[in-house]
Amino acid sequence: MTSVTPIAAGTELPALKLPPVDRRTLALFAGASGDHNPIHIDLDFARAAGMPDVFSQGMLVMAWLGRLLTQWQPQAQLRQFTARFQGITHLGNAITCSAQVTETLTVDGEPRVKLLLRSVNQYGETKIAGEAIVALPNS
């Protein structure tokens, strides 16, 4: 028998550790996401914009947080997902995505949990602070 751990405030999701951001990842994500903003893929453009180098699309880091959520519960249970981009994710940054349940609530008769989300680099700098609301119909 497997024991079922109840999901309550304080529950931590398994963290997702990503490899360091490199230029190839940014180029692939630009093409795959449809965000062709050259500041993420063209060094000349980034320098002309006053940046030392290209840097990550915020939405790449948000997509990693999305992976963290959908590996925990099926995507169909995701109700809301918010990211506040708090710092630029630079080349070489190795991001860890984490989430913690902060609240259990019931909306329209549906049990849900609220999660606090964080993406942090290897130096402890927060790149995304966010929240998600996930329904837990079988809990």
């Binding site: 965000d35 062709h36 903003n37 500041i39 453009f45 914009a49 939405m59 997902f81 990211a83 981009f85």
Partner: peptide
């Protein structure tokens, strides 16, 4: 993105993404 920058009369080089929120209704 390009159309929005034209509408706002803005240079793409000055743009950053501040926040993004999704509210989901169906898959």
């Amino acid at each position: 993105l390009e159309k929005l920058m034209q509408l706002l009369k803005l240079d793409l080089r000055k743009l950053l993404h501040g926040e993004q929120e999704f509210t989901y209704h169906r898959m």
